[in-house]
Design a protein around this nucleic acid. Structure first.
Lengths: 214, 214
DNA sequence: CCTACCGATCGGTAGG
DNA sequence: CCTACCGATCGGTAGG
């Protein structure tokens, strides 16, 4: 009995995440408001009314889609949070490449959906998503801070520069194409080099702690 | 007679651009599909039917809004196109600061509307907008190319790096706030320094032509 | 620049 | 998971 009930529950969850995947694809392709419950139902081979057995309403579907994407994004770099041993430079490289790999790897350029869709969420749901994003920012800022303290990076404005770095990675998932000249990891490497050295610095030399001479 | 007719025409154009301003604001705040013709009419103190005296249909309004924004954006840096005398470094600084000033200066973070709205345009309209954007990319790439040839910048991947630079500027208009700690020009300066030197380089030294020694 | 109106579609519910 | 149905609103037109 209990086993059967749990089995039912698991099946429902699997089906639910499958529905979310279909809905997310449509939201991304057409936009939230341009996608009707009928559209979603058609993509899922069921009737609109059935969707209400899985979700409270349309906004609830959007929320679950965005939350899932955001959580995955944060998860892709969370392993860096507790690590205090690795050099900040290597951590930054990991963060950039991991996050870019995640963003560019999705068939959907999901970030656009998150950016525009957030305003269609209830205030409570908006807050939850923003809280999740803050985790990402916190990890990035901590790496930069350590890098500055340890003499790897110049004494830059942490707040602004962490935003600049995130901007590069996030926005790049926009123009990147799998069919292009370069692979995800090649672009990731160029991106890391750009963040470290800019367009002036030598792209083959990565930061090492500065000498305390001058 | 002719004078009166022209006068009429001018008045219509003024009214039209006023309507576009109102519509653009709504599209940006709520999204294209979430904004109804009635919403626009209400904001313009008229009836929905009247809007069809100025625009063919709803898509036409969106097109004119996006085209206007994109044209203004390109115009803000077009003065750099023919200039071959100024140093590429100074040109890059100008481009970054001009474009960022434009983006951050609008009450609307209009880039989001352009990004998401473009898919709601007809194919022909999409092509026109993309063509306009190409002008921007071309100007930026030319500056970088000159910078590399003249020895100001490292021999970087022009295509990728120009995308990275544009990403920084465009995405930054997202998180920038007028009520924040820094002014538009201060952030612009940090942005320029970041692009030139990365987080490793000294933020007070800008590129000078490299010596041909090694 | 308006009133009056159109068919189509929307998100969501009742009830099984 | 469905059929049947709801009131509300949509973009757009006719005609003046």
């Amino acid at each position: 009995m209990t086993v059967t009930r749990q089995h039912k529950k698991v099946e429902t969850l699997i089906k639910k995440s499958w529905l979310l995947d279909k809905a997310g694809m449509l939201f991304w392709q057409q936009g939230y408001h341009a996608t009707s419950m009928k559209d979603i139902a058609n993509a899922c081979n069921c009737k609109p009314a059935n969707l209400y057995n899985y979700f409270k309403n349309k906004e609830d579907i959007l929320y679950e889609v965005i939350r899932s994407i955001t959580e995955q994004g944060v998860s892709s770099i969370r392993y860096l949070e507790k690590d205090e041993d690795t050099s900040p430079v290597e951590q930054l490289r990991s963060l950039i490449k991991s996050h870019f790999r995640f963003l560019a790897g999705m068939k959907q350029s999901s970030i656009l959906l998150s950016d525009t869709g957030i305003k269609d969420l209830s205030i409570e749901h908006q807050k939850e998503i923003i809280k999740l994003r803050d985790t990402y920012d916190r990890i990035l800022r901590k790496i930069i801070e350590r890098g500055i303290n340890d003499g790897y990076f110049a004494p830059i404005d942490i707040q602004v520069v962490s935003n600049l770095i995130a901007s590069v990675v996030i926005r790049s998932s926009f123009w990147f194409s799998n069919k292009g000249r370069l692979t995800i990891d090649e672009v990731g490497e160029i991106m890391f080099s750009f963040v470290c050295n800019g367009i002036w610095g030598n792209s083959n030399i990565y930061p090492a702690p500065k000498q305390e001479s001058n």
